[in-house]
């Protein structure tokens, strides 16, 4: 494969300059990464651990979504299907089959990726807003399936899911133990996404985002690249959903509903499309808002809508994108 040499045919600035660093992290990103790891280490002592775990699950979900929208330019409006179904499968695996947490999480991820194969195969036949509408419609189909299917428990969901013992002997029942598992899964996912983006494969993804016909003319089967990116994203969304289910011990229709697909879009948009740390910050904003403004009831929806409008009209780079722009660094 001569992908590295071929890609240089695209003018610099389109694909972005490659800076040396560890796993594709450049200087400023490394500093931010260290800050993030420190924050992950102290967060459970300063904040309620379950809240931080919820935040990390959504941050991982948003990272998965950002991989598609930020780096391939594919707008999926149905990511709740993979997130929610990953949760259901992990819940079923842990409760009915009695699998250990790590196996349940892997099961959730595999199911997400498997659904990604089918949905991606259908959806990448159309582009742009059609892609968004198709993913949305397929996700709605999954929602109706979950309402009726026996194993999801319909309106009740799957309840009282045990967290189990990690590798069969480390009990996850305490919130702190669970927190470290969630933190490790998040960091692996986060660094993994970054690694994918900075691989030769990731360069082709970004080329597709910038100019798909041109990438095709350079000899890349863009549909194959889009499909693989889609599957990766769906698998990671499934992992995020699986982890969330284990944290809360419950899998419900909320996680497959369309509003969840909308929320992950909002998180990524607020944080900054196509930034590495954006999904984390965006998830923090959205989850924090839901937590602290919960007594406002339906006004939370109005505020979320307002943030959508404000982001689109006034700051399309998102929080991290604006900060990066201010200090002239890529975050």
């Amino acid at each position: 494969m001569s992908s590295e040499t071929t890609i240089t045919a695209i003018p610099t600035g389109v694909v972005g300059k490659q800076s040396p660093g560890i796993w594709g992290f450049n200087g400023s990103q490394l500093i931010a990464l260290v800050l993030m790891l420190v924050a992950l280490g102290v967060a459970p002592f300063l904040l309620y651990p379950v809240f931080v775990m919820k935040l990390l699950c959504f941050a991982l979900f948003a990272c998965a979504f950002n991989l598609l929208i930020g780096y391939v330019g594919l707008m999926s409006f149905g990511h709740a299907a993979f997130f929610g179904m990953g949760g259901y499968v992990a819940g079923h695996a842990a409760k009915v089959w009695g699998l250990t947490p790590e196996l349940s999480i892997i099961a959730g991820g595999l199911v997400g990726a498997g659904m990604g194969v089918a949905f991606g195969w259908l959806a990448i036949r159309r582009q742009g807003i059609y892609f968004a509408m198709i993913t949305m419609a397929l996700a709605q189909m999954v929602y109706f399936f979950c309402v009726q299917a026996p194993f999801t428990g319909g309106e009740d969901g799957i309840q009282a899911i045990p967290r189990g013992k990690l590798f069969g002997f480390i009990s996850m029942d305490s919130d702190m133990a669970m927190y470290w598992l969630v933190a490790v899964v998040f960091v692996i996912g986060f660094v993994g996404v970054h690694r994918v983006i900075h691989s030769p494969f990731g360069q082709v993804m970004k080329a597709i985002r910038e100019n798909e016909p041109r990438t095709t003319s350079l000899g890349y089967r863009t549909d194959d690249y889009k499909l693989v990116a889609f599957i990766l994203s769906c698998g990671l969304a499934g992992v995020a959903g699986a982890v969330k289910t284990l944290v809360f011990g419950i899998a419900t229709l909320t996680d497959v509903h369309f509003s969840m697909s909308g929320e992950v879009v909002l998180m990524t948009l607020v944080g900054g499309l196509g930034t590495i740390f954006g999904p984390l910050i965006g998830a923090g904003v959205v989850v924090g808002m839901q937590n602290y403004l919960a007594e406002l009831g339906a006004w939370v929806t109005v505020i979320q809508g307002g943030i959508f409008v404000a982001c689109v009209l006034a700051f399309r780079r998102g929080i991290v994108g604006e900060i990066g722009n201010l200090f002239k660094v890529k975050l």
Partner: peptide
């Protein structure tokens, strides 16, 4: 701008309208 932003904007407007009516 990209079509995507129109979609996000109208999604946000829809959320606002729905939320106001629900309140």
């Amino acid at each position: 701008l990209d079509h995507l932003y129109g979609l996000l904007l109208t999604l946000g407007l829809g959320l606002i309208i729905e939320g106001v009516f629900r309140n």
